[in-house]
């Protein structure tokens, strides 16, 4: 199939795609052991698609890493497996339960699993000797991310120092690191939520079905609609009802809320996103609500 572009014009989505492919190739060429961090969400699926395109018809030359929180949506894991099988890419799973058993992270009963992901992830990066880890972060997501570089340097402790960020000029990325350090790479930094949806629609690719409208037994907590699951026992006063909902992000099942929606196609989701009143994180991620600077704090510790 041949493709033609009138007047040598490239749409913004094609420009974003070209920039991301460039980043994937640059990292694969310059880093010894890259890995793609797969969170299960739409952003990491878009990353997988871009990586597929960057190296086609060769296979993606690095593995995919997922932190198994034990609290993932089963639909998300199924989608992950479909992608991994289709692309023939290696999957590395780092489980929080294993990390607890090995004493890598401590379960003191107060720390959320989301927070324990950090230690589990850093341990997996260190154990496997990964030198570059692709993440699906976007700069439009959150204030603290607006200044994040595409190549984000992490020290031996996996920490991010906002004051020590390297200047990033033109499309010349600096991948120099010392032994024990690694680089976080954000190939879709310049994409917005709407770009991601548009791309998923255009590419017609598989995403977890929980993004689409479906019937679900839910209860209200802290102003959010949470999924009924044995992993998340009801507190007093909470009651379960069945509603027509969809998820805007795929995180920890006990912390990720859904919204009432009848959007059952990408086009309908795009319409919904275009007029959405709440930012995706603020609306449905319990973990970002604790403080305004919550994201920034977790990033410094090595959150993706």
């Amino acid at each position: 199939m041949t493709e033609t572009h009138a007047d040598y014009r490239l749409s913004q989505l094609d420009q974003l795609e070209a920039e991301s492919i460039h980043i994937f190739r640059e990292v694969a060429a310059e880093f010894e052991k890259p890995v793609l961090m797969f969170s299960g969400g739409k952003d990491s699926i878009v990353m997988l698609r871009l990586a597929e395109k960057a190296f086609y018809p060769a296979k993606i030359p690095f593995p995919v890493l997922q932190v198994d929180t034990g609290l993932d949506f089963p639909e998300v894991l199924e989608t992950r497996d479909n992608w991994v099988n289709r692309l023939g890419v290696k999957l590395v799973v780092a489980s929080i339960d294993d990390a607890i058993a090995k004493g890598v992270v401590v379960d003191d009963g107060k720390t959320s699993r989301n927070r324990m992901q950090i230690g589990t992830l850093l341990n997996a990066i260190e154990e496997n000797g990964f030198t570059a880890a692709f993440g699906g972060g976007r700069r439009d997501e959150e204030k603290a991310r607006a200044k994040e570089r595409v190549y984000s340097h992490r020290d031996e402790f996996g920490q991010w120092d906002p004051k020590m960020q390297r200047p990033e000029l033109w499309s010349l990325y600096n991948g120099r690191i010392h032994a024990g350090e690694h680089m976080r790479i954000f190939p879709i930094s310049n994409w917005t939520e709407l770009d991601v949806w548009d791309y998923i629609g255009r590419e017609n690719i598989e995403i977890p079905p929980i993004y689409f409208s479906h019937q679900r037994r839910v209860f209200e907590r802290d102003g959010m609609l949470m999924s009924e699951t044995p992993l998340n026992p009801l507190r007093s006063g909470e009651t379960v009802t069945e509603r027509t909902v969809r998820f805007r992000t795929c995180g920890d099942i006990t912390l990720t809320g859904c919204v009432e929606s009848t959007a059952s196609t990408i086009a309908e989701i795009i319409d919904e996103v275009a007029i959405a009143k709440l930012t995706e994180r603020g609306a449905t991620r319990g973990d970002d609500r604790f403080s305004e600077a919550a994201m920034e704090d977790r990033k410094k510790e090595g959150y993706f």
Partner: peptide
């Protein structure tokens, strides 16, 4: 999923 009509195909 069914392919959606991209709203931004011609956006620069």
């Amino acid at each position: 999923t069914p392919a959606a009509e991209s709203t931004v195909t011609n956006m620069d």
